[in-house]
Design a protein around this nucleic acid. Structure first.
Lengths: 92, 92
DNA sequence: CAAAGTACTTTGTCTTGCAAAGTATATCTT
DNA sequence: AAGATATACTTTGCAAGACAAAGTACTTTG
């Protein structure tokens, strides 16, 4: 079956953006996905817990800045997920 | 975004099977999906509520037999879903 | 005719997904 | 300079989802 962590509307798109960007700030991610802060925060925690992403805490001047990176396991899982989708589409 | 009713492990596969078969008994569907009766029943109810599937109640001899059909709206939505997945894959 | 099987559905429970509210600090306004 | 507003998130609360276990209504079998 599909990776349940990735087979979800917000997270599949989120990971897709990460693959394309490698490092993206929280705010930019939030805007791309058109989700609320809280929603994004909880999705990121879930992905972080499984080492799909890496959360880097920095500062921009004096304000906190969270940068999201894709982690090796995330990249591998996403690749596998895409392969699974391809297979699924071929069969349909 | 992806149709939330279809972007779920059990239901995407379920609909895929329905597209291929058009009419399939509850039991066969259950075995194909490797889910419990209760789980399948609730997924079907959800799909029926949105007119994605049609549930036909018949008898096989004296035993009840539930046959699941794909409904027009289900077919259209699934087609759209597959197109969305294709687009998603192309971008990745 | 009692026990076991068949074909489901309903109920209960744990997990998600989400927005609203909260936290902490920074910047603007008057 | 104090209060108001903004920024950048995280935590909390709750409604909806996913699933298995238990329930329902028979039928078949020993």
């Amino acid at each position: 079956m599909f990776d349940p962590l990735l087979h979800q509307t917000v997270r599949s798109k989120l990971m897709s953006i990460l693959i394309a960007n490698d490092a993206i700030p929280f705010k930019a991610l939030k805007e791309s996905l058109a989700v609320t802060d809280g929603n994004l925060s909880s999705h990121l925690s879930k992905l972080e817990k499984e080492s799909y992403v890496l959360i880097e805490k920095t500062f921009e001047g004096k304000r906190p800045k969270t940068i999201v990176h894709i982690a090796p396991k995330g990249r591998e899982s996403f690749d596998r997920y895409i392969e699974a989708l391809k297979q699924f589409i071929e069969d349909n």
